[in-house]
């Protein structure tokens, strides 16, 4: 049994990584958001859209100049104080992506972040899955394969 144990765990972990997850189907639609940027947050801080949606973000800087860089999509928009600027894109990548201010807006600027959620966060689901498999594997190993070392 012993040689099969790490192999089984490895296979399970591999499955957790590669098994395709069926996205929740939705009809792509046009989504428009007005996001206010002020030191040091976006409001709303989190935007949720469905995969395939045509997303327009109107960025309004309310105090000083702010920007918005969408990680993963590598898109950026910039807004002067009191002005609005917009960006439109198709949300064709699944997952959760950080929005970062790309204009020095003050002391906490490097930590001014928001988030756009496109569908489900499969990375998190897979990470949870692998972490759980790893933890269970260690516990099973301790109790079934090397029971002499299990204290309880």
């Amino acid at each position: 049994m012993k040689p099969f144990f790490p192999l089984s765990v490895g296979l399970l972990a591999l499955l957790a990584i590669i098994v395709p997850i069926q996205p929740i189907s939705s009809v792509p639609s046009k989504r428009v958001f007005t996001v206010e940027a002020s030191q040091y947050a976006y409001s709303p801080g989190v935007i949720s859209v469905n995969p395939g949606d045509m997303v327009t973000i109107n960025l309004v800087a309310t105090d000083v100049a702010h920007g918005m860089y969408i990680e993963g999509y590598e898109l950026a928009v910039f807004s002067d104080p009191g002005q609005s600027a917009s960006i439109t894109f198709v949300a064709d990548k699944n997952g959760h992506f950080r929005l970062r201010c790309n204009v020095s807006c003050g002391a906490m600027h490097p930590f001014m972040v928001g988030e756009i959620q496109v569908g489900q966060n499969y990375l998190l689901v897979r990470a949870f899955g692998i972490a759980t498999i790893a933890a269970i594997a260690f516990i099973v190993y301790q109790h079934k394969i090397r029971p002499q070392n299990a204290s309880e």
């Binding site: 933890a135 260690f138 516990i139 190993y141 301790q142 109790h143 070392n149 299990a150 204290s151 309880e152």
Partner: peptide, 17 residues
């Protein structure tokens, strides 16, 4: 956690959880 369980007498599974 597994390595230290013998000395600490704390079951590794609890620490792992």
């Amino acid at each position: 956690a597994q390595k230290t369980a013998d000395r600490s007498k704390v079951p590794a599974w609890r620490v792992i959880l």
